[in-house]
Design a protein around this nucleic acid. Structure first.
Lengths: 123, 123
DNA sequence: ATATTTGTTATATTCATAGTATAACAGATT
DNA sequence: AATCTGTTATACTATGAATATAACAAATAT
C-alpha cells in the first residue's frame, strides 16, 4: 500500500498516517499479521521525520490496530473490543450526524451513504 | 440552552462551542431566527475569552449555521446547501466507518446506531 | 445627542503541540 | 560483530490556541 502525505493539508502528519493505515486495514489492503515498514524506512519514503511516524505507530498501538513483534517489527493486529468500539463510534457519529440534521439530511439519506461507503470498502 | 466547556478536554474551546451550538440546532433547542448570546456575554458566562467565542461564531457563520443581524446580533440561520453538505458528510463518515470496519462492526449495526441517534435528536 | 451594545479588527503575550534533528539504548536478526 | 527493530532523551523552531487590552463602525436605547 502506498502511504502518502498531503503537505498542504491542515491535518497533522501523524493523523494522516493513522487514518491511511486504518483505511488500508478497512479495505483489506493490510491484513492481520502483515508488517508495516519500519519507522525509519517509512519516514525516508514519504519525506518526513522518524519521530512523526513513530508517533502514529504508537497511537495505532494504543487504539488497538497494530502491535509490536520483536521479530518482525510493527505488525497489523486489530484488537476488536467491540463493546468499546461501538461506544466510541457512537460518540463520533453524534457530532457528524448533528451537522447532517441541521442541513436537512434525512435518516434514510444517511443510510444510503453508509451503504455506499461499506460497499466501497469490500471491493 | 446551557453551553458548557470541558476544561480538561483536549478539544479546543472554540471547537467545543461550535459542536454544542450545532447540537443545539439539531435537537431544536435553537430554532431559525433565535439569537445567540453576545460574544462578550457568553465569554463571561462560561469563563473564557471573548475572542475564543468570536472565533467559534465566525466559523459557524462560514459553515452556514448562523448569520449576523445588525439589529439582533448573531442569529441562527442554517444555509442548507444540501449537495455540499452531503459531500462533507460522506468524507467525515469515511474516516469514522473505516474504524468501524476494522473493529468488525457490521453495516447493520451502524444502521442501528444511526437510527438511535436520529431518534434522540427528535425528542 | 449621548451612552451603550453589537460584531470586528489590531497588536502582543503566554502556552501547548507539531515537526524536525541528533543521539543513544535494549532486543532481536543476520 | 554489525545491523535492524522500536523506544527514549534532549533541544530547537514553527504554528496555533487562548488570553489581554484597546479601538472601531453600525445599530440600539435612554
Amino acid at each position: 500500500m502506498i502511504v502518502t502525505i498531503d503537505f498542504n493539508s491542515d491535518e497533522a502528519f501523524y493523523i494522516q498516517l493513522c487514518n491511511q493505515i486504518i483505511f488500508g486495514i478497512a479495505i483489506a489492503e493490510f491484513r492481520e499479521g502483515d508488517n508495516l515498514p519500519s519507522v525509519r524506512e517509512l519516514a525516508e519514503d514519504i519525506g518526513i521525520n522518524m519521530h512523526t511516524v513513530n508517533k502514529a505507530y504508537t497511537i495505532l498501538k494504543q487504539e488497538g490496530y497494530v502491535k509490536l513483534d520483536r521479530r518482525k517489527g510493527t505488525v497489523i493486529a486489530v484488537n476488536a473490543d467491540k463493546y468499546k468500539a461501538i461506544g466510541e463510534l457512537t460518540n463520533e457519529m453524534k457530532v457528524v450526524l448533528a451537522k447532517a440534521v441541521c442541513k436537512n439530511i434525512s435518516c434514510e439519506e444517511v443510510h444510503e451513504i453508509v451503504d455506499k461507503i461499506f460497499c466501497d470498502f469490500s471491493k
